[in-house]
Amino acid sequence: MDLILDGIIKAIKLLIAGDPEVLGITWLSLKVSGTATLISVGIGISIGMIVALTRFPGKKFVVSVVNTGMGLPPVVVGLFVTIFLWRNGPLGFLDVLYTPTAMILAQAVIATPIVMGISIAALQNLPAKLRLQILSLGATRMQMVWLLIREARLPLMAAVMAGFGGVISEVGASIMVGGNIKGYSRVLTTATVMETGKGEFDVAFALSIILLVLVFLVNYLFTLIQQRERPR
């Protein structure tokens, strides 16, 4: 019991002091996971849109594959990204293994199917005739896509939140492709794993609290955007 209490007290002290190393770790977490989410939103929503709105043979199979991808274990992703980025791997020439770039890449691979899967469900959930209605209002294809995205904005924002939540809390792939290098590729989750392993519970606590607050703040922001302009 003392262990927990001590941990919390030390954590709060650490937070108030504004330790530069902790701040650096926090900022990198936000940067890596934010960028990865942005990439996954770009790919996930656009491909999700195509899958949801077009008819092609094997569509059900594709949707199943995407849905399976939503539960992709981060360590598996970490393994494959490592192999790809390994010096003599297919993407070895990029020379980005054990850098934040590699972490962004791995996290984007994890988040993309999540965003895509929820986007497909969201867009398929719109009334089938809505597209015809939008076109009959004189919309161009781009205007139609934009109006459909607006119409599905609640579940699409949920897709973004799920994607971000999936990668900010992920640790396996980040350690494998980032290496948890101090002051370079150390993020909140990898640092927490390390500090806990060392028995430094107070630091681990502080990092965990920061992680929770961060996730909360980002989701709160998304929720504000999501619920904006909702008429009464």
Binding site: K129, L132, L135, S136, R150, E151, R153, E229
Partner: peptide, 17 residues
Amino acid sequence: RRRISMVFQEPLLFDTT
């Protein structure tokens, strides 16, 4: 299409005012 318009059986309104 910009010279015509269509009303369906379902109102198909947008989620706004």
